[in-house]
């Protein structure tokens, strides 16, 4: 039984990792073939960094992810506090509104926003892409902050007010530190969702503005390109390193 478990785990992990590893190995392949080894090279990496299309989409991906996650975190956190203090009926209505983009298929969110932007004569491009990303990010911030607000003891806030703190000061000194973990989680979630989004971006951008996912899609549609392999390798290693750092940090916190 033990052997069987190990064997099964091995097969599943092989299934998960083999395609990625093959992709990474062939990013160092000198011949353009995907199956025959033509010697070690770094030329695809050199070409990758000379490719303006990829560099500009990398730039847009990061800019959009940073701005949209920041804006969504601010709007979402403030909204969550407001929602938390609503009457029950209003709260239910607003929370259902919040869940709407989460459960709606991405493609429907994408085309509906595209229709709206064209309808109000907004040119598809950077601004529309940013609006779309903020829109699908806010609900995730709210959903991460709400549980923390529920755990919050509201008497502490009232005590601060009784002791003469202004509402804003009390919020900064009492409420914010308590809900901070939820806010950070929401911001991180928003950031990664924005980095990774393809479907919604695909429909809501235009005029030369595209993110990495869109560029990869159009490159992959044109056929195999070793530059994509090089890009995959860099992205996978970056993600892996980030995950290891985050994991190390959280486990250290747990131990402390």
């Amino acid at each position: 039984m033990r052997f069987l478990k190990k064997f099964y785990t091995l097969i599943i992990f092989f299934f998960l990792y083999a395609p990625i590893i093959v992709l990474m190995i062939f990013s160092f392949n000198n011949s353009k073939s995907r199956a025959k080894w033509g010697g070690f090279t770094l030329k695809w990496y050199a070409e990758l960094f000379k490719d303006n299309e990829i560099l500009s989409s990398l730039y847009y991906t990061i800019i959009i992810a940073v701005i949209s996650s920041l804006v969504a975190t601010v709007i979402g956190t403030i909204a969550a506090i407001g929602i938390h203090n609503m009457s029950k009926i209003k709260k239910t209505v607003v929370m259902n509104l919040t869940y709407l983009p989460v459960i709606n298929p991405d493609i429907v969110t994408g085309i509906s926003l595209m229709i709206l932007f064209i309808f109000i004569k907004l040119n598809l491009g950077f601004i529309t892409l940013l609006f779309a990303h903020i829109t699908f990010n806010i609900p995730y911030v709210i959903l991460s902050v709400m549980p923390k607000l529920k755990q919050l003891d509201k008497h502490v806030y009232e005590a601060a007010l009784d002791l003469g703190a202004t509402p804003l000061f009390a919020f900064r000194k009492v409420v914010l530190p308590e809900i901070m973990p939820g806010v950070v989680t929401g911001a991180l979630l928003a950031f990664t969702l924005s980095l990774d989004d393809f479907v919604i971006s695909f429909f809501t951008t235009g005029s030369g503005v595209s993110n990495l996912s869109i560029t990869i899609y159009s490159m992959a549609r044109r056929g195999i390109n070793p530059k994509i392999n090089a890009l995959s390798t860099i992205m996978f290693i970056t993600v892996l390193l980030l995950l290891i750092i985050v994991n190390k940090r959280t486990s250290r916190k747990e131990n402390a």
Partner: peptide
């Protein structure tokens, strides 16, 4: 925390970018 209106910007945003597009 009596300030219920602070979620208004969010509600306006969601109506504009979620409800209106779906109605369209």
């Amino acid at each position: 925390m009596k300030i219920r209106w602070i979620s208004t910007p969010y509600i306006v945003w969601m109506i504009m970018f979620t409800v209106v597009p779906l109605l369209l």
